[in-house]
Amino acid sequence: MEAFTRLDAAAAPLPLANIDTDQIIPKQFLKTVERAGLAKGLFYDFRFDEQGVEKPDFVLNQPAYKNAGVLITGDNFGCGSSREHAPWALMDFGIKAVVATSFADIFYNNCFQNGLLPVVLKAEQVAQLMDEARGGNHVVSIDLEAQTVTSPSGAVFSFEIDPQRKQKMLQGLDAIGETLQAAGSIDTYEMKRALSQPWLEGA
């Protein structure tokens, strides 16, 4: 996983609540056996019409936002299916952080597995970022170490993040490798459980 420390990137406003993972990456793109190449399916039904032609009014199709690295959006982003294809598609498109008032739980968790930073800010702060992102200068700065988002006009907003998650993001740590350091505890747990709940063994 790539480490996330600091990001200066164009921010795209997407002012809708409850954007679900079916909208982030529709099912026809889930048939892949790869992680890469999912950018083409990102927000597919927002970006393209029935003929597969780009809809010019959708934010990520506008020249100013084609290289966006940050998405500013409404409540409960990423609800619905557990598909990790959602963060993969966002990352593959070049989005490295999503700012919202709240996130759905599984999506939020999946972000951290992939080095995509989900940032929770207050409603009025998100509204201000949304407004500014619509204007001429859309570049926001996110500093994970300092836990701040700086708006295009220079307003600084602090955000909360779980300290362990932050550390892992900063270092780009692999969760499996870390857990395997506790392999001894897993062995012990399994031995104890084989005695206390023998019906779970030897199926």
Partner: peptide
């Protein structure tokens, strides 16, 4: 509960 693919691997 549901998990993502990285967690499936985990």
């Amino acid at each position: 509960h549901g998990i993502g693919t990285s967690e499936v691997e985990h």
